[in-house]
Amino acid sequence: MTSTLAPRPVGTVAVSFTRQALAGLRVLLVLTVLLGIVYPLAVFGVGQVLFRWQASGSLVAADGSQVTSPSAAVGSLLVGQQFAGEQWFHPRPSAAGDGYDTLASSGSNLGPNNPDLVSAIEARRAQVAAEEGVDPALVPPDALTASASGLDPDISPAYARLQVARVARERGLPQDEVAALVERTVVGRDLGILGEPRVDVLALNLALSTMGS
């Protein structure tokens, strides 16, 4: 044991390793109590006191009010949901299950030169342009692509504005009122520099449905 690299007899190593592994198990169990139980419960406790609504999932009821119980909610402002009918603002395409399936969050994982993706994008462009009655060149990228989570709650302000005419027509509302609603719902970049401007589709549709009634 004079040289630092001298090998030790195999038997000694095995005994020593077993002893270390048992010590390791004891250390791990103690740390599990602290880091795996005490710590998450402490965060839970602080969350319940200070940010109960956020900690519960940023849930909203049909009248737009904030709720903390999932059973009272129509959804979460943070999680996208499917709106297929003509009377709704539509979200982005989604690769989560059959669309906005929260039990299957995922992107399409299609590569940048994948021929299936290219033809899907072209088909969506034609479809959105026909639905909104606009020039296909005006359809913004987020309307043509699936998000990474498949649960993107937002669309770009451009895509929201594109849908104003159709939604106003279907709901029999004045177009400028719906347009004003969209502008009120647009959220700018955080701190003016972070991320991108966006429109929360559920927030917009909730405001729309209370406006109609």
Partner: peptide, 14 residues
């Protein structure tokens, strides 16, 4: 084809 590399990206991040 889409006018930007938004496949697999979230609107809020861009």
């Amino acid at each position: 084809a889409a006018g930007g590399a938004m496949e697999g990206k979230e609107t809020r991040f861009g």
